[in-house]
Design a protein around this nucleic acid. Sequence first.
DNA 1: CCGTTTACTTGACTCGTTCAAGAATGCACG
DNA 2: CGTGCATTCTTGAACGAGTCAAGTAAACGG
Lengths: 156, 156
Amino acid sequence: MPPTEDLELALRGAALRVTRPRLAVLDVLRGHAHATTDEVLNDVRDRLPEVSHQAVYDVLRALTAAGLVRRIEPQGSVARYEVRVGDNHHHLVCRSCGTIADVDCAVGSAPCLTPAEDHGFVVDEAEVIYWGLCRACSAAPPVLPTLVTTPERGTR
Amino acid sequence: MPPTEDLELALRGAALRVTRPRLAVLDVLRGHAHATTDEVLNDVRDRLPEVSHQAVYDVLRALTAAGLVRRIEPQGSVARYEVRVGDNHHHLVCRSCGTIADVDCAVGSAPCLTPAEDHGFVVDEAEVIYWGLCRACSAAPPVLPTLVTTPERGTR
DNA sequence: CCGTTTACTTGACTCGTTCAAGAATGCACG
DNA sequence: CGTGCATTCTTGAACGAGTCAAGTAAACGG
């Protein structure tokens, strides 16, 4: 059982109760960036076999609301979560296999960009998703060697 | 009934068959940016009362695959569609009411940004979503006057 | 006009996520 | 170091956007 004292501190710092499901979820996410709810559930059950899926949903929502985890939801993917927060980094997403990689923000702190025209909006964050093909998929294209630009699903 | 000859040309230009559901969907989207599938369905039924929801799903998929419409899917929202394509513009989304506004790309043509580190990805597009509060919501905050930065739900 | 291909209708179904009610647990306070 | 209350977790049902599948209708090239 790895030390989870820092996780406990993180929870207390966010005024959240310290529970085993919450510690487990944080610990899982620490070792598995961009995990889906389902993946989190499975990994958590390796440690706490009895947790309900609802508990994981609740925990992820609480942690997200508290700012301890970030929820990302790229086109066509289910929700994914990561513990890397507060640095406003961005994501590279592979159109073919769905792999996600982190990219440091090119500009600085949030909002790292400001829109050309803000239409009266008060902007607090710029979310950037870079779409393309990961190294493996661009080396061995699945079906069409050309036409990378086509919004093809890789979702099947 | 407005002239739809240009829409017909657009379909033919994309090597798509010209059908009434397709013309209607394009026409609806032309007048209603960022409409959800359901909104498109309703608006289309004002003209063609008998279209099935499946037809609208199929049409939207075909048009998206052909590049005639763009699909956007901000956090917590269902899929939305727009006919403005080819200029790689971005979106402002209100965290509170969900309103979406278009913003011209600050930089240039796609991919308007390049990631600091590409992790071997071949990037073809940078999708940017500016999160904040629209003019109305920032003037009359729903619940919390402060703490705009908090990842608060406005999703309901 | 005819036949083939592609699109649409109908209706059932999947899957991620949420709702609701009750049992269990964390934790502030005495 | 109990005890009580609020919060969280369990259980199980429900919801809704989107998809699948089989059959009918409509484009459009010949």
